[in-house]
Design a protein around this nucleic acid. Structure first.
Lengths: 229, 229
DNA sequence: TTGACGAGGTGTACATCGTACACCTAGGGT
DNA sequence: ACCCTAGGTGTACGATGTACACCTCGTCAA
């Protein structure tokens, strides 16, 4: 009864469909059934192209990361290696820009456990920039760990994810009382008057942390730092 | 047929049971049914004490964090405030030690979206240490963001979670080829010969990143840094 | 003493999810 | 003329979270 000829599915098209679905309706809407329906196919058909749902999710982040990891034109036009800080910065901001288009990707990346090709490619490119900048393999290793999830273009969400508490939460826990947290209150009131009405400026927090880290690493590199015995 | 008198459930006892279950069999084993069975009760009974599963998870991380956030004796014996770096360091290492007892907690914390009382208490304590150390409210704010998930005593997992790939993964994605990632290879071989046989020394990575960050923040504080207009 | 009430535990039932398994079907190579 | 296989189908199962009606006490006011 499928009157319209449908181009055959492929792993990539299935994953692309999942990404589109997640973009449109959120990651929770991505069930095998919903995705199959969207692709005009029966749920089990998907399993001919992805191993299981984990594999699908892996594929989704892989495909998103490809967007800034595949094209060498992104930032890798072999700049002077001594500009490694600028190069890293540029690449991470590109990552951030891409991830901003797929709000679900942040949480998805954090929960992935496999390192897929595009992911590794990005990490390798970043590692390469640091090494080319003259950092020792040793220091580069620690640098990657220190950057942590910042290498994906985001910082961890410290405070409440804005807009992530839609439905009336029905917790039985006591409601937090602002007065009980004086230190926090002091910094939020300061932040509020510095940026009225808004919550944290995530973009600024990201570059602040990134630059702080890169500066600190540069200082270590200049000092010829190396691991303690 | 419940011959043995069972002490009545409470929110805390339910949550404690869930933590014990997670410690014993992993977080995935924590289903409402399994937890109810463990507590000798029917699944729906739990809903008299927790709002829903989200609330249960929230309660679990809250209760774990209480372990290092409640007792003021932990590190807060009013040391000289100029030792704020030491104080922060001590507190975060205490957090790390506690979290090490509950391997599931890392991922659980990352996926929580509500900030519960114990969580806020910890963040408030930390914020207080920074403020007491003389950092401006402004800088303190950015400092908290920069520390990110490090405030819970862990760094994000950069590479594969060791032992988290138990069952034969049945991905359809191409297997990554080490030769394709030369930069990564260079640092892992360096790390391997520096620490034969093992993977990353997470403890060292944690304190490296922490100290790097604290040093950098101290430098900014000493320079009287403040937000750009 | 009685009666209502509410807190806490029960039982049944449902929707949704991932996915195992057997099957069908069309195209291509021998 | 044959079979093989890649790709899509259909049915079915077990697990999960949780809605809803119910029951069963202990407490306390009348």
């Amino acid at each position: 009864m499928t009157c319209r000829a449908r181009p055959p599915l492929t792993r990539d098209s299935v994953i692309a469909g999942a990404i589109a679905l997640a973009d449109a309706e959120g990651i929770d809407a991505v069930s095998m059934r919903a995705l199959a329906a969207r692709l005009g196919v029966v749920p089990m058909a998907l399993y001919k192209h992805v191993g299981d749902k984990e594999d699908l999710l892996d594929g989704m982040v892989d495909q998103v990361i490809d967007a800034f990891s595949a094209d060498p034109e992104a930032s890798e036009t072999a700049p002077r290696p001594e500009d490694w800080r600028a190069a890293v910065r540029t690449r991470l901001l590109a990552a951030r820009a891409t991830l901003a288009l797929h709000p679900w990707a942040r949480r998805a990346i954090e929960t992935r456990v496999r390192r897929t090709p595009a992911v590794l490619r990005h990490m390798d490119a970043l590692t390469g920039l640091l090494l080319a900048g003259g950092l020792s393999a040793d220091l580069t290793h620690h640098a990657m760990h220190t950057l942590g999830n910042r290498i994906w273009g985001f910082s961890p969400e410290l405070f409440n994810d804005p807009g992530a508490l839609p439905t009336s939460t029905r917790s039985s826990a006591p409601e937090p009382e602002p007065a009980d947290y004086p230190a926090i209150m002091r910094v939020v009131t300061d932040a509020q008057q510095r940026r009225p009405g808004g919550s944290c400026d995530e973009d600024y927090e990201f570059v602040f942390a990134l630059d702080l880290t890169l500066d600190a690493l540069a200082r270590l590199a200049a000092d010829g730092w190396s691991s303690p015995a």
